[in-house]
Design a protein around this nucleic acid. Sequence first.
DNA 1: TGATATTGCTATTGCCAATAGCATTTCTTA
DNA 2: TAAGAAATGCTATTGGCAATAGCAATATCA
Lengths: 141, 141
Amino acid sequence: MIDPLSSLPGYVLSRAAAASLTELNRGLAKFGLRHSDVSLLILVEVNPKLTQSDAGKLLDIQRANMVPLVARLLDRSLISKEPVDGRSQGLLLTGKGKKLLREVKAVVDHHERELELSIPERLRPHLLPILNALWDSIRSK
Amino acid sequence: MIDPLSSLPGYVLSRAAAASLTELNRGLAKFGLRHSDVSLLILVEVNPKLTQSDAGKLLDIQRANMVPLVARLLDRSLISKEPVDGRSQGLLLTGKGKKLLREVKAVVDHHERELELSIPERLRPHLLPILNALWDSIRSK
DNA sequence: TGATATTGCTATTGCCAATAGCATTTCTTA
DNA sequence: TAAGAAATGCTATTGGCAATAGCAATATCA
C-alpha cells in the first residue's frame, strides 16, 4: 500500500496537528475543557484585561467565533469581564480560573514534552523555528 | 501584548495546520472539493482498488466518517466501486476523476511549494522528517 | 460634525471527528 | 467443520470549530 501523502508537507502538517489535538483533548476532557478553551485561558493569564477581539487576533479566531468560546468560560466562572470603554471589555482570570489553569497546565506541559521527545534529538532545535515560520508566513497572507 | 503560545510546539503545530488548510481549501473551492476529498483521490490514484477501510487507515479517518466522504465522490462520479469480496469494495478513479485530479494537483503542488518556501532555506531539509516523526509517534499511541 | 472603523454580537452554514450500534461476510481455531 | 472472533460498510447522532453576512452601539478621525 503506497502512501503518496507523506511526502506532502502540508498534508503531514495537518495530520500531525489533528492527531496531536485529539491526544491533547483526551487529556483535557477530565476538566471539561477543550484545547481552544485552554489557549484562551493561557493568553488571558499573561495578558489581563485583554480584549476579546485582541485575543481573537492572537489566536487566529474570528470575532464571531470568539463569542461562544468566551461565553462558555464565563458560564463556568473561569474568566470575568471588566469594561474597558463603552464597547470593549477586558478579560480576566477569576480565582477559580487561575486554580484550574494550574492543574490544566500540567497536562499541557506533559503533552508538549511528549511532542518534543517524539522527534529525533538532533531535529528538536529546529522544531519551533520551523513551525513558527510556517505559521507566520501562512497567517500573513 | 505577550504571546505565550508561540513557544508551545503543539499549539503552533495546530495553528499552522489550520491556517494551511484554510489556504488550501480556498484554492480547492473552484473545484467544489475539500482537502479531504483530494487526499482520498490522490490515495486512490496510486492504489487502485483500495478498500474504503484501508484508505481510512492511511488517512487516519474512521470507518464511519469515510462514508459521507466516499459518497460525495461517488455522487460526482469521480470514483467508482468494484466488489473485492462479499463485504468490501475497491475504489477506483473514473475518467472524470483522473481528469479533475490532474487540475487539482496543480493547486496542491503550488500550495506545497509555497509551504516549503515559507521557511528559511537551511531548515527546509528538516521539514518533512520532523512532521513525519510527529505524525508517526502520535498516531501510534 | 460626519464619515469610517471597531467591538461584540446573532444567526446560519458546512466540515470534520467521535461514539454507539447493526447486519453481513470473512477469518481463525479448537 | 462448526463456533467464536474480527472485519467491512453502514446508520444515526453529537459536538467542536471555522466561515459568512449582517446589526447596533461606540469610538476615532478628518
